[in-house]
Nucleic acid binder design. Structure first.
Lengths: 94, 94
DNA sequence: ATCAAATATTGACGAACGACTACATTTAGC
DNA sequence: GCTAAATGTAGTCGTTCGTCAATATTTGAT
């Protein structure tokens, strides 16, 4: 599942917690955070600390992954990168 | 790539930013955060706000994903879940 | 080596965090 | 319905966030 908003994350975590039959308190203790914080997270509070989120995902055995979009076939030429780099400041024209 | 620590995330973001030839200021503006915050993120500060992280990933076109470990074949019986639910409190044997 | 850009550090400040306590509300079994 | 557990809300408190401004320090091209 792709996580584009905090709400996505919140829903996923809540579902996984329930799937395991855990209460919020149980998840909180397993994650090493307060029950308040779990509530905030499941309510999609945008400002939750990243490290605590990672701890919670770990407690739930939910692996977080990122696929670097530009995985450009080892050694391939990436036109975008080159353009960006020359554009960056007036290396040539301008 | 799997993200298990804030440091993983920090490294990935820094690399992607450089791959695009962006400065910290450039990434900050595109993400709608301060340059200070980008610095903190790239230095793996554990307490960065989740929402800002998501914004930054979006600016970099880095999609975040989670695969619910237990993807139990639609309709299948998950013994672990059942056990957890009965264990949860003394429904039967205490 | 020089010079400018990029990156990092520091201090100040208002705002908000996360933990805790206590209380209210909702949910689920009997 | 009744009851207890689970979930949510409100208030307080110490701490730290994220932003800004100013100042090092590092990096990279010439």
């Amino acid at each position: 599942m792709n996580i584009i908003s905090v709400k996505d994350l919140a829903i996923l975590i809540k579902e996984e917690r329930k799937a395991r039959g855990w209460t919020q308190l149980e998840l909180a203790e397993r994650s090493g955070v307060s029950r308040d914080w779990i509530i905030a997270l499941e309510q999609a509070k945008p400002s939750v600390e990243l490290a605590l989120v990672l701890r919670t995902l770990k407690a739930l055995n939910l692996p977080l992954a990122i696929n670097p979009a530009s995985q450009p076939t080892e050694g391939a030429i990436n036109l975008n990168d080159i353009l960006n780099q020359t554009r960056q400041r007036g290396h040539e024209s301008q």
